[in-house]
Amino acid sequence: MTGIVKWFNADKGFGFITPDDGSKDVFVHFSAIQNDGYKSLDEGQKVSFTIESGAKGPAAGNVTSL
């Protein structure tokens, strides 16, 4: 699925993605970002991701920028 990064705190390594389908915002951890180098996201960035079952509920996985 796709969405827009609502916010991401690079110091803490997590944030939230707002899915394009209008569903509830999804937690994203830096370890789910699939790019080389520094793993961070920018507010407003368009991303593709999967929904994984995290310890505290749904979380984004396999996050790639579009």
Rank of each mutant, 00 (worst) to 15 (best):
M1R: 11
M1Y: 14
M1N: 09
T2Q: 09
T2K: 08
T2C: 08
G3C: 01
G3F: 01
I4T: 15
I4V: 13
I4R: 09
I4Q: 08
V5A: 02
V5K: 00
K6A: 07
K6G: 03
W7C: 06
W7I: 04
W7R: 03
W7L: 03
W7H: 04
F8E: 01
F8C: 02
F8Y: 11
F8K: 01
N9Q: 06
N9G: 05
N9F: 08
D11V: 15
D11I: 14
K12Y: 10
K12H: 09
K12L: 11
G13V: 01
G13R: 05
G13H: 04
F14S: 03
F14N: 02
G15R: 00
G15I: 02
G15P: 00
G15A: 02
F16Q: 04
F16Y: 07
F16N: 02
F16D: 00
F16L: 04
F16T: 03
I17F: 02
I17L: 07
I17N: 00
T18I: 15
T18G: 05
T18A: 14
T18E: 08
P19E: 02
P19H: 03
D20V: 06
D20H: 07
D20F: 08
D20A: 09
D21N: 11
D21Y: 07
D21Q: 06
D21E: 06
D21S: 08
D21R: 06
D21K: 06
D21T: 07
G22V: 03
G22R: 06
G22T: 04
S23R: 08
S23Q: 08
K24T: 12
K24Y: 09
D25A: 07
D25L: 07
D25P: 07
D25Y: 04
V26S: 01
V26Q: 02
V26F: 04
V26A: 03
V26N: 01
F27G: 01
F27K: 02
F27N: 02
V28S: 01
V28K: 00
V28Q: 00
H29F: 08
H29V: 04
H29L: 05
H29G: 04
F30V: 12
F30P: 02
F30D: 03
F30W: 15
F30H: 12
S31G: 06
S31Q: 06
S31C: 07
S31K: 09
S31F: 05
S31N: 08
S31I: 05
A32Q: 10
I33S: 03
I33N: 03
I33M: 05
I33H: 03
I33Y: 04
I33P: 02
I33K: 02
I33F: 06
I33Q: 03
Q34G: 08
Q34P: 04
N35K: 15
N35G: 15
N35P: 07
N35E: 11
D36Y: 11
D36R: 06
G37D: 10
G37E: 09
G37Q: 10
Y38A: 13
Y38S: 11
Y38N: 13
K39S: 07
K39N: 07
S40M: 13
S40L: 11
S40K: 15
S40Q: 11
L41E: 01
L41T: 02
L41G: 01
L41C: 03
L41A: 02
L41M: 05
L41Q: 01
L41F: 05
D42K: 13
E43F: 14
E43Q: 15
E43K: 13
G44W: 04
G44D: 04
Q45I: 08
Q45T: 13
Q45A: 11
Q45M: 14
K46R: 12
K46I: 12
K46P: 11
K46L: 12
K46E: 08
V47K: 00
V47C: 05
V47E: 00
V47I: 05
S48W: 14
F49G: 00
F49M: 04
F49P: 00
F49C: 02
T50P: 01
T50Y: 09
T50W: 10
T50S: 10
I51Y: 10
I51G: 03
I51D: 02
E52L: 14
E52C: 11
S53M: 15
S53H: 14
S53L: 15
S53F: 14
G54V: 06
G54F: 09
G54S: 15
A55Q: 12
A55M: 13
K56P: 08
G57H: 08
P58W: 09
P58K: 09
P58L: 12
A60C: 05
A60I: 03
A60H: 01
G61H: 14
G61R: 13
G61T: 14
N62H: 13
N62C: 11
N62K: 12
V63A: 02
V63N: 01
V63R: 00
T64C: 13
S65M: 15
S65T: 13
L66S: 10
L66C: 11
